[in-house]
Computed example of a mutant assay.
Amino acid sequence: MGPVLDLVKDMELALGQSETDLSPWFREDFIWDGNAGCGRKTGLREFEQGWYLPFRDAFGDRRFDTTIWLEDGDWAACVGTCHATHAGDFMGIPATGRPLEVRYIDFWQIKEGRIAYNKVNVDLAGVAAQLGWDVFDGKGWDRLDPPVTRLWRGKHGQGAAANPLEVVQSMEAALQRSDVDVSEFFHEDFIWDANYGCGLKHGLAEFESGWYEPFRAHFGNRDFVSPHFMQTGDWAACFGACFATLERDFMGIKATGQKIRIPYIDFWRIEGTKIAENIVRVDFPSIVEQLGGDVFGGKGWGSEMPVDLSAKPAA
Rank of each mutant, 00 (worst) to 15 (best):
L5D: 00
L5G: 03
K9N: 01
L15N: 01
Q17N: 13
L22D: 09
I31N: 03
N35W: 10
G37S: 11
G39T: 03
K41A: 07
T42V: 15
R45G: 03
Q49N: 15
Y52E: 00
R56G: 14
R62E: 00
T67R: 12
I68F: 05
E71S: 08
D74R: 12
D74M: 12
W75G: 04
A77M: 09
C78V: 02
C78W: 09
G80F: 02
H86R: 00
F90S: 08
F90M: 02
T96C: 10
G97M: 11
R98I: 00
V102L: 13
V102T: 12
I105Q: 15
I105A: 14
F107H: 06
Q109L: 10
K111L: 02
E112H: 09
I115G: 15
A116E: 07
Y117C: 07
K119R: 12
A125H: 13
D134C: 05
V135L: 08
F136K: 10
V148F: 04
K155R: 15
A160T: 07
M171Y: 13
A173N: 05
A174F: 00
R177A: 13
V182T: 15
F185R: 10
F190D: 04
F190P: 09
I191A: 04
A194G: 04
G197I: 01
G197D: 06
K201V: 01
H202S: 04
H202L: 05
G203M: 13
G203V: 04
E206H: 07
S209T: 12
S209C: 15
W211Q: 03
W211L: 14
P214E: 01
P214A: 05
F215V: 04
A217T: 02
G220P: 02
M230T: 02
Q231K: 15
G233P: 10
W235A: 15
C238T: 11
F239R: 00
F239P: 02
T245L: 09
L246D: 00
E247N: 15
G252C: 08
T256G: 14
I260S: 14
W268A: 15
G272L: 07
E277T: 01
I279E: 06
R281M: 14
D283Q: 06
V288S: 12
E289C: 13
G293T: 02
F296T: 01
K299F: 07
K299I: 05
G302A: 10
E304P: 09
A311K: 11
P313D: 09
A315W: 02
